[in-house]
Every structure is written in structure tokens, then in C-alpha cells.
Design a protein around this nucleic acid. Structure first.
Lengths: 142, 142
DNA sequence: CCCCGATCATGTGCACACTAACAAGTCTAG
DNA sequence: CTAGACTTGTTAGTGTGCACATGATCGGGG
């Protein structure tokens, strides 16, 4: 336990490396999606709704690992862009059912293609083995 | 290029995995530092100033991979907490020199110890080999 | 049937992060 | 020695993310 202060090198800490890697990913996402494309989280929300159909905000948040206030923000912005609509669940008046609009359905196929390109670009600096390893290791951290 | 929509599984995308891992890290950071400890970025800034001495906001930002508006916010909050002071650089009137206060110097050794614990906790689910691999791979993504 | 705990959503306040546009100081080429 | 380029910092606007407190609704046990 003879820990000199020098032992702590910021650039080697996982937290710093994770932050940098995620930052880089977000920059690639924005660059590839373009000016009027969805943000990273907006796309993730749309994709979940596409795969699973209309969901309450709460379920949407769980699928995305977002807490309720954050979901609200994302959904509000998606409504403002005309990509989702929201109404009360008939069976449970607490729930707000979020559903895609036709505009979102029309745009999604192209966006999924771009999202694939983002993943490829993010992983581009790595060998195939490292790409697989990274996925496996990050999965264990979830 | 026969890409079915099903090919895109959110939970397998690097971006999602990076975000989750970083979220978990931040939660551990806050939990270990405690209520009145610094946030992750505040600690990183303090540590850089400790290692390198007073820096301009710009240099501080480069050391931390933060852009200027973000640095300003972090420095403002650190000033409000009495952990840094800011003055104009005598040699270059554009620069704002940021320096640690005695309060920060007194608190830093304990905080560095906790920061080490955060790194350990973040990596805890991984084998030693995976810990090393993760560092190497994330380094290539920077 | 009614109350009580669990669930769903909201509002507020704080922190971080990026863009774009701007102001001010420094430096160098001509 | 001055004009334009570069560097440094700020402001404003948007988006993500968390904790905490509050209110509305649902479900089950007495």
C-alpha cells in the first residue's frame, strides 16, 4: 500500500478512458447522422419503439437505461420534431403511451443504416479481435 | 448488404455499452466520494492542477479533454466551493490562471485514495487480464 | 369497500458537454 | 509597425443525466 501520488495517472484511469471513448462515439454519431438527424439517445428511443411497438415512458426508459426525467426530456424533443406522439394508456391512467409517427417510420430505415455506420466508425481503429473483446468486456461491466 | 432491421440490436452497439459502462462508473464515483466530495470532472481538474501546478483554463481543458465552455463551468463551481482561485496571467492578458487553494491541497490526498477505490470498483467485475485488455483497447480508441 | 404501499409521471435544481457567435489580446508577415 | 491570423475566453442555446420531492393512479389485504 505504498501509494505515491504519482501512482494516479489520470490518462490511465478507466473512467477517463470510458469518457473519452464515449465522447468520440457521440461526435461520430452526430457527424454521420448529419444536421437534421436524431441525436444518439433520440435514435435509440425511436429504435426501441420500432422494435417493440408503443411503450409507456417508464418501459422505454428501462429499455434504454434512462431515468424518468431524462426520458421525459427525450420524448418531449421527439414530439417537438414530430417523430412520436403521446397519449394516456387506456388500461392504466398513470401511463403515457409513446408511439412513432409515420414520419418516424419513413425515416427510420435510413437512420438505422447510418447507425450501423456509426458503430463501424467507432470500432474502426481496432482489429476484429479487439472489437469482439471490447464488446465482451463491456458487457461484463453492465 | 442484405441487412434486416433485426441486425441492429441496441444492446450490442458499442455506443450503448460505452454509455452504460460510463454511467456505472459515475454512480460508483459519486457513491465513494460521498455527498460533499467533488464530482468526477471536478476531481479530475483538481488532480491535474495538483500534478502540474497552476494552468490557464485552456491548458486545463486540453489536459482533461474538455472544451472551453465546459471548463468554465467546472472552474466556476470549483471556485464556488473554495477549491480554486482564478487570476489573469501576468505574461498573457488573455489567459486566466487557475490555481488550487489550501483547502483543496488539504483535501486532495484523501480524494486521490478514494479515486483509486473508484477505479478498482469500476473494474471489479473483470479478471485481471480483462482489466488490462480494456485499458489497452480503450487507449486505442482515444 | 377502503386504505396503504407500489408504480408512473412531473417539476426543480444541479452538472456536464457541444455548437456557434463574439470579444479581446498576442504574434507574425510584409 | 501595422494588418490579418491565431489564441483565449465568454455567452447563449440545446441535449443528456441524476437526485429529490410531489402528485396521481393502481392493486391487494383487511
Amino acid at each position: 500500500m505504498d501509494q505515491e501520488p504519482e501512482d494516479y495517472v489520470l490518462e490511465e484511469q478507466v473512467g477517463h478512458l470510458l469518457r473519452r471513448a464515449y465522447q468520440r462515439h457521440l461526435a461520430l454519431f452526430q457527424g454521420i447522422m448529419g444536421e437534421d438527424g436524431p441525436t444518439s439517445m433520440q435514435f435509440a428511443a425511436l429504435h426501441v419503439l420500432w422494435r417493440r411497438g408503443p411503450l409507456s415512458q417508464n418501459l422505454l426508459g428501462r429499455a434504454l437505461a434512462m431515468d424518468p426525467p431524462t426520458v421525459k426530456g427525450v420524448v418531449t424533443r421527439l414530439m417537438a420534431r414530430g417523430l412520436v406522439v403521446r397519449d394516456r394508456d387506456a388500461a392504466d391512467a398513470r401511463r403515457l403511451r409513446v408511439a412513432l409517427t409515420p414520419a418516424a417510420l419513413a425515416a427510420l430505415p435510413a437512420w438505422v443504416g447510418k447507425a450501423r455506420a456509426v458503430t463501424a466508425a467507432t470500432l474502426a481503429p481496432l482489429s476484429r479481435e479487439d472489437q469482439a473483446r471490447l464488446g465482451t468486456i463491456l458487457g461484463k461491466l453492465g
